[in-house]
């Protein structure tokens, strides 16, 4: 009897985690799809609203779950928008994974040193740098991209990461208490 109860309890917490992860994935998908048709100053200059969800899932769960959430989110959004397996998909996947990973590491290694805005800034920087690197590797054969062009893009992408990092960090700060409260109130 006691053992059965324990077993049910264990299963419950697993189900809880699964449900929370899938909620996070769906929130991320919604944010990313809302953002897709918004006008952009430059074709590559996105806001990266889904990073809010990545950051929140890093804070709610562990690094492993957050990476999992990013992979599922990016794969599903690419299927929904029809961009899966095109070059943009690989850019998005590599940038998303790398930024999640580095933000997680920063939160583990320096938990107090950076504020949420700082962590999201690091995420935005890593995201853009990874994309630039992967784009260089993917395209330099076809397009004869030289170091000159990379050097031209690097400051632009770094500069774009600052406002987006700030906005994402600020939104995360606003949204995190709401999610924590809801989690407490549902009380399952």
């Amino acid at each position: 009897m006691v053992q059965q109860d324990k077993k049910i309890g264990h299963n419950n917490s697993r189900i809880k985690t699964i449900i929370e992860i899938s909620l996070m994935v769906s929130l991320g998908i919604i944010l990313q799809i809302i953002e897709a048709p918004l006008p952009r100053p430059l074709p590559w200059a996105k806001l990266g609203l889904a990073n809010v969800i990545t950051l929140i899932s890093l804070l709610l769960f562990s690094l492993k779950e957050a990476v999992f959430i990013s992979i599922i989110r990016i794969a599903l959004v690419s299927i929904l928008l029809g961009t899966i397996f095109n070059p943009g998909f690989f850019l998005s996947l590599s940038g998303g994974l790398m930024s999640t990973f580095i933000m997680g590491l920063v939160l583990i290694i320096f938990p107090k040193r950076f504020s949420l805005i700082g962590v999201s800034l690091i995420g935005a920087l890593v995201h853009n740098m990874t994309q630039l690197g992967v784009a260089y590797i993917l395209f330099y054969n076809q397009l004869h991209i030289s170091w000159n062009n990379v050097l031209y893009f690097l400051p632009l992408m770094l500069a774009w990461a600052i406002p987006t990092g700030f906005i994402v960090g600020y939104l995360t700060k606003l949204i995190l208490p709401v999610i924590l409260n809801t989690r407490k109130r549902v009380n399952w």
């Binding site: 320096f110 950076f114 504020s115 805005i117 700082g118 800034l121 920087l125 770094l158 600052i162």
Partner: peptide
């Protein structure tokens, strides 16, 4: 709100941007 590390991070990124242009 912003910690010291945040500000130094932003400043160093700006320094890298300027350096890249040079």
């Amino acid at each position: 709100m912003l910690t010291k590390s945040d500000i130094s991070l932003v400043l160093s990124v700006i320094a890298v941007i300027v350096g890249c242009y040079f």
